[in-house]
């Protein structure tokens, strides 16, 4: 097994160290972000299906809204913004 390699991403402007290869959903949860969007009636929500089906984990990535956090792998310097929709 290759040794773990770390990269830095930004979640709502604060820097977080994440393992290279992790998805944004995993990175958010590991960073202690419990929920990252509100439903249409205002309930807190986070990832459900983990495989791109349910769209519950939508987040804004590098200015692009409605990205599925579970299907996107973190890249160095990536900017993740929560609670935008």
């Amino acid at each position: 097994m290759s040794p773990l390699e770390y990269i830095e991403i930004f979640v709502d402007e604060s820097a977080h160290r994440v393992i290279r290869g992790n998805t944004v959903a995993a990175a958010l949860l590991n960073a202690g972000v419990i929920h990252w969007r509100r439903s249409v009636s205002g309930q807190p929500r986070a990832a459900l299906c983990g495989m791109g089906v349910c769209f519950e984990c939508r987040v804004s990535i590098d200015g692009q809204p409605h990205q599925r956090a579970c299907q996107i792998v973190c890249t160095p310097g990536m900017r993740v913004t929560t609670h935008v929709d």
């Binding site: 994440v18 393992i19 992790n22 998805t23 995993a26 590991n30 983990g50 579970c70």
Partner: peptide, 9 residues
């Protein structure tokens, strides 16, 4: 399981 495989601790 998918989240753990994707790096969730």
């Amino acid at each position: 399981q998918a989240l753990i495989k994707s790096g969730l601790d």
